[in-house]
C-alpha cells in the first residue's frame, strides 16, 4: 500500500484536522463526538448529512451557505454513530427542525434511525438512492445512494435558505431524488487504509460496470472499451430508469471516483453531452470533477437530474462551501 498516511489509525483525524484548518472560515470541527458544523448560523431548517469517510469532498466539503449545516464523518466506508448525529442536530438546530440526508445503506439508515428516535428536536429523514446499477426490489436493501446526493444537498440547501419549512424541504429532497439517476464504472480498485490491500482485483484489461462507491461489484465485468461506448452503456441504464421526455432540460454530473484525471472526466462529459443531445435532451447545467469519491479508485460516475424551472433556479442559487462555490 502506498498512501500519504502516518498510521491507518490516525488517518481520519489527520485528514479532518487538515480540512478544518484549511476551511476555518466555513466550518468548525467538534470532537467527541466528531461533527463538523457550519461556521455562520442562520435561522432556517438545518440540513445534516453524514456517512462513511473516503468519499471526500462528500459531505463536509458541502458545509456552508446554500448547502449543509453539519456533517457527521464515520470511519472510512463505515457509517457514523447516532451520538454524532444527535450532537450535530443539537448544535445546528435553530428551532426550525433538522433534515437528515442519508444515503441508502443498511448501516447509515440504522444509525440515523436510532438518532432520530432518540432526538427531541423536530426532524425528518430522506433516503437517497440514485444508483441504477442495482436493481430495486422489496427483497433487497435497494439502490445505493451515490453522487446524486450532492445535487440533493445543493438544491434542498438552496430551498432551506429561502426559509422553507421542514416538510417542504423533505418533499423537495424526495422530489429531486425521484428525478436522479447515476451509474459508475471502475478501472482500478481502491485500498481501505485499515485493510491495506485492494478491495477487489480487476485485471488490467477489464472494467467493473456499475461499481459502487465502496468498491462493491456492479452489474458485470467487461473488457476495456472506448470512452464513448462506456458512456453509452452508463447512459443507457440511466435513461432506461428516468425515461425522460424529449426536449427536457437536464443537469449532467460527471463525477471522478478519486484517481481519474480531470481531463478524462471532461472527455467523458463531452461524449455524454453529445449522446444526450442526439437523443433530444438538452444539457442546460453541468458539473464535472471529484465530488463523491471512493478513495483512490480509478473510474467515474455519470448522474443525470431532470430539471424544471424551479430546480434550475435552486441549482443556480448562491453557494459557498469548500467544494462548490458560485454566485457569491
Amino acid at each position: 500500500m502506498k498512501k500519504f498516511i502516518n498510521t491507518p489509525a490516525t488517518y481520519l483525524m489527520d485528514s479532518l484536522n487538515g480540512f478544518a484548518a484549511a476551511h476555518a472560515d466555513l466550518v468548525t470541527l467538534h470532537l467527541e463526538p466528531l461533527v463538523l458544523t457550519r461556521r455562520e448560523r442562520q435561522s432556517k431548517v438545518a440540513l445534516i448529512s453524514g456517512g462513511g469517510s473516503g468519499h471526500e469532498p462528500l459531505h463536509a466539503g458541502f458545509i456552508g451557505h446554500g448547502m449543509l449545516d453539519a456533517a457527521c464523518p464515520g470511519q472510512v466506508f463505515t457509517s457514523p454513530t447516532p451520538d454524532q448525529m444527535i450532537a450535530a442536530a443539537e448544535l445546528v438546530d435553530t428551532g426550525a427542525g433538522v433534515l437528515f440526508i442519508v444515503k441508502n445503506y443498511s448501516g447509515d439508515k440504522m444509525n440515523f434511525e436510532m438518532a432520530a428516535e432518540m432526538l427531541s428536536t423536530s426532524n425528518a429523514t430522506v433516503i437517497i438512492n440514485d444508483d441504477v446499477a442495482v436493481e430495486n426490489s422489496s427483497f433487497t436493501t435497494g439502490r445505493r445512494g451515490v453522487a446524486g446526493t450532492v445535487i440533493v444537498e445543493k438544491i434542498v440547501g438552496a430551498l432551506a435558505e429561502t426559509g422553507a419549512n421542514l416538510e417542504d424541504c423533505r418533499l423537495m429532497a424526495e422530489h429531486v431524488n425521484s428525478r436522479l439517476a447515476s451509474m459508475g464504472v471502475a478501472l482500478k480498485s481502491c485500498i481501505v487504509p485499515a485493510a491495506g490491500t485492494p478491495t477487489f482485483n480487476l485485471p488490467d484489461d477489464e472494467i467493473e460496470i456499475g461499481v459502487g462507491i465502496h468498491g462493491e461489484p456492479g452489474r458485470r465485468r467487461s473488457p476495456m472499451a472506448s470512452a464513448s461506448s462506456i458512456v453509452a452503456e452508463l447512459l443507457g441504464a440511466i435513461l432506461a430508469d428516468l425515461k425522460p421526455e424529449a426536449g427536457v432540460e437536464v443537469l449532467l454530473l460527471v463525477n471522478g471516483l478519486g484517481a481519474t484525471p480531470v481531463s478524462e472526466l471532461y472527455l467523458l462529459f463531452n461524449d455524454a453531452r453529445c449522446q444526450l443531445e442526439q437523443r433530444g435532451l438538452r444539457v442546460s447545467r453541468s458539473l464535472v470533477g471529484n465530488y463523491t469519491t471512493a478513495l483512490e479508485m480509478a473510474g467515474a460516475s455519470i448522474t443525470l437530474c431532470l430539471l424544471s424551472k424551479e430546480l434550475t433556479a435552486l441549482w443556480d442559487a448562491p453557494v459557498h462551501t469548500a467544494a462548490l462555490r458560485w454566485g457569491v
Partner: peptide
C-alpha cells in the same frame, strides 16, 4: 458499542 462502531454492526 453504539457510539463506537458505526456501520451496521454498531446498532445491531
Amino acid at each position: 458499542l453504539l457510539s463506537t462502531i458505526g456501520g451496521s454492526s454498531g446498532p445491531l
